[in-house]
Design a protein around this nucleic acid. Structure first.
Length: 758
DNA sequence: ATGCACGTACTTTTT
DNA sequence: GTACGTGCAT
């Protein structure tokens, strides 16, 4: 098979590049994955590079799986031997093998964000600092930022100037000490410790850097310094490092991603070959022009412009709705029409939003109109409380020193061990430099607690010992889980909770045990591609726990095949849909309020919002529908909104306007804004009297129009924010009255004594 | 130790 | 609008 066929010149150049560093700027829809998979297949077949000597890293497990599958269709089952996975899972694997050389327990547990949060809260609480004013989560962010930049707490301590910085550095130190006491690594540590291992232990560095003839990194625009450094170390011997990405799609700066790394790749590797993929195979030229209009406003990007051989296709549609409800109605209405008139399948349609909070209204209205809607990426399976409880039991069995897991389950189900006892236990452990488990398992001899407390702890200790023994006898994680559930009466505990979610939770528990029973540990393969460990030597529990924390598949609510997809812009990266609705195009949402405030100081946040908008636009293959609501309830507060500044950046002639958007930038819009502003500023009435209503179709304006200013003898002046469906005369209008305390009222046009103002 | 009531705060989240 | 944390009462 010729892996260079059916490629454009740039793609082919990327595939056939073998020796030396390579950076591929791969624009949206430019055939990036195709190029990457072909390149790997080409290296394997044409240049005889063994699979186990290729390392390919991605950010998500999904991406890694998909890439492996695609390579497998090209080269067959040897693709199984590729070192391919996420940064974190690759690091975890290496640390289990060689981490002991820098003092890492091979049985380390991995703390997820929830565990980390618990840990930092303990640290901050113990400092006596007011956790209201100084939020633990902000310290955690700072710690994470530091780690992403490979800064140690020692360096932070030395550099600390202000009292707050000193606190932050101190917390960082204590946080690390607690992680260590638990024999735990957090997500960032997996990278940091791997880098430390490779940097300090030459033997290990030689081993890995000799091994990998080729190192490839996908989505490089999202990589942080630690990740880049790690890859550099692994590629240090052969210098065949290939990074692929798109600076315009960098949307994770807030998580430490550093776009400069792809932009300045040739600084790190002056001899690097640079290839740009700019031909787009996804979208119409209208969509690309719109997207370009937006993204070109960003400074400091690598200049490029996507082009397509395809035609212009349909115009963009921009709809201005009065409220978020109406926006959702309009979207539903459009989708119904697309389906009925144009035979568009629901599954070809995506609704993209900035924040999850926007999805409520869509759920509600789509349910009512019976349009199937699939929410993607809302809740993680392993984040559910009941799942975390049970996996915490497993963690304690795997590594009894895991203090966070032990604290979590110590009183679940309730066994009369309260916060006070746990505090004393932790304190005692800290003082004597032991883990909670060590203190707990010595209570018989040392009797450090009052008889009442002691009596509560003894059965717990017995339970844990019994479970530990069972864990010695079996590899089967599902059997262990069943035992834990049985011995703790966990199911009854769930069912007796009065939050009404007991049955759901039991279902999730069943799903967990099912997953455990189907779980098969990966064979460890050594450098010759031979199986290094017999199946019975495999670390079933450890591997299961690792999968649980590092490969948490997001649950997709009701996957009934034919459904409209609703997700955040972040969730949509890397996907494509024939029809895309980009909703909530408002100042404060996209760009997000936070970015708008901050942008006065720096433009970076605003530029990231713009890239987010760009990502949304470039998901579409055939058509884009944009919408905004003039009034939106967010955080329980109804606010008047302004259309997104990004709308002005889309070339006007590409847009077809509907609803209130027809008045955008017109004198009427100015009046609307002005009036709404006054209305908003002067009062905070209970205006959100949401009622059942149909979408406004303003194509046939009745007597009044949206935004009209009217006077009512009793209520005073107000603004039309909603109208009954047309079809002849408008029957009612909803008016937001300016006078405080009145709010909005729905009035029958034919009876209400209304008169136009102005 | 546990349960309830009230106040508050709140992007995005690949790992 | 909800979820979570604090504070008080049982």
């Amino acid at each position: 098979m010729d892996f260079t066929a059916q490629l454009n010149d740039h793609q082919r150049a990327a595939v056939m590049h073998v020796e030396g560093p390579l950076v591929i700027f791969a624009g949206a829809g430019s055939g990036k994955t195709r190029t990457l998979t072909r390149r790997i297949a080409y290296l394997m077949t044409e240049h005889g590079v063994p699979a186990w000597r290729i390392l390919a890293v991605t950010f998500t497990n999904k991406a890694a799986r998909e890439m492996r599958e695609r390579i497998e269709t090209l080269v067959g089952p040897t693709a199984q031997r590729l070192w391919m996975g996420t940064f974190h899972s690759m690091c975890a694997r290496m640390l289990r093998m060689h981490g002991s050389r820098i003092g890492i327990d091979p049985h380390f547990v991995i703390f997820d964000s929830d565990d980390s949060t618990r840990l930092i809260k303990e640290v901050v609480a113990q400092s006596g600092l007011d956790s209201q004013r100084y939020k633990p989560s902000s310290f955690l962010h700072q710690i994470s930022d530091a780690k992403n930049k490979l800064q140690t707490y020692q360096a932070q301590l030395e550099a600390a100037q202000t009292p707050l910085e000193k606190y932050a550095a101190q917390f960082y130190k204590q946080y690390q000490e607690r992680l260590r006491a638990s024999r735990a690594l957090d997500f960032d540590d997996l990278l940091v410790e791997s880098v430390r291992l490779l940097e300090t232990d030459q033997e290990t560095r030689d081993y890995w850097s000799d091994r990998f003839l080729h190192v490839l990194i996908d989505e490089f625009q999202d990589a942080n310094l630690a990740q880049f450094r790690w890859a550099q170390l692994l590629a240090s011997r052969h210098r065949n490092i290939c990074v692929v990405g798109d600076d315009d799609q960098s949307i994770y700066a807030w998580r430490g991603a550093d776009v400069q790394q792809i932009l300045n790749f040739t600084t790190a590797y002056p001899d690097a070959t640079v290839i740009r993929l700019e031909q787009n195979y996804r979208s119409t030229s209208t969509i690309l022009d719109a997207a370009h209009g937006v993204i070109k406003r960003n400074t400091g990007r690598s200049p490029k412009k996507l082009w397509t051989e395809d035609g212009a296709g349909e115009s963009l549609v921009l709809h201005g709705a009065a409220t978020a409800h109406e926006e959702a109605f309009w979207v539903a209405d459009q989708i119904a029409q697309l389906q009925r008139l144009d035979r568009v399948s629901y599954s070809d349609i995506a609704i993209l939003c900035r924040v999850n909070a926007q999805s409520r209204v869509f759920e509600e209205i789509f349910m009512r109109l019976r349009i199937p809607l699939r929410l993607v990426g809302t809740q993680r399976f392993y984040d559910r409380r009941e799942i975390k409880d049970l996996t915490s039991y497993l963690r304690v069995l795997y590594n009894p020193h895991d203090n966070v897991a032990l604290s979590r389950i110590i009183n679940v189900p309730a066994r009369g061990i309260g916060a006070t006892t746990v505090d004393r236990l932790t304190g005692h452990a800290a003082q004597t430099g032991r883990s909670m488990w060590e203190v707990l398992s010595a209570i018989e001899e040392e009797k450090p607690f009052s008889p009442a407390v002691h009596k509560k702890l003894v059965p717990l200790l017995a339970l844990l010992r019994e479970l530990q023994e069972a864990a010695q006898l079996t590899d089967r994680v599902d059997e262990l889980l069943q035992l834990i559930i049985r011995k703790t009466g966990y199911i009854n505990f769930l069912l007796n909770e009065k939050d009404g979610k007991g049955e759901d939770r039991v279902r999730n528990v069943d799903e967990l045990t099912l997953a455990a029973s189907e779980f098969e540990p990966q064979a460890l393969i050594d450098e010759d591609g031979e199986i290094a460990a017999a199946p019975d030597e495999l670390d079933y529990l450890g591997q299961f726990l690792e999968t649980v924390t590092l490969d948490d598949e997001r649950q997709q609510a009701v996957n009934n095949g034919q459904a409209v997809t609703l997700m955040t812009l972040h969730g949509a990266k890397g996907l494509e849909f024939p029809m895309v609705f980009l909703v909530g195009m408002e100042q404060g949402l996209l760009p997000h309020a936070r970015a708008v405030w901050n942008s006065e100081a720096s433009n970076n946040d605003l530029e990231e919002e713009r890239r987010l908008c760009y990502v949304g636009l470039t998901r579409a293959m055939k058509r884009i529908f944009l919408s905004y609501a003039a009034q939106r309830t967010l955080h329980g507060r109804t606010e008047i909104t302004q259309p997104s500044q990004f709308l002005k950046e889309i070339p006007n002639d590409l847009i077809e306007r509907s609803g209130m958007a027809r008045f955008l930038d017109s004198p009427r819009q100015a009046l609307v804004n002005d009036t709404l502003e006054k209305f908003n500023g002067s009062s905070r009435p209970n205006n959100a009297t949401e009622t059942k209503h149909a979408p406004v179709d303003a194509d046939v304006p009745p007597t009044y129009e949206m935004g009209d200013r009217l006077r009512h003898p009793k209520f005073g002046e107000g603004l039309v924010v909603k109208m009954s469906p047309h079809g002849g005369n408008s029957e009612w209008v909803e008016i937001a009255f300016l006078q405080p305390g009145i709010g909005t009222k729905k009035l029958a046009v034919h009876y209400a004594p209304l008169e136009k103002v102005g």
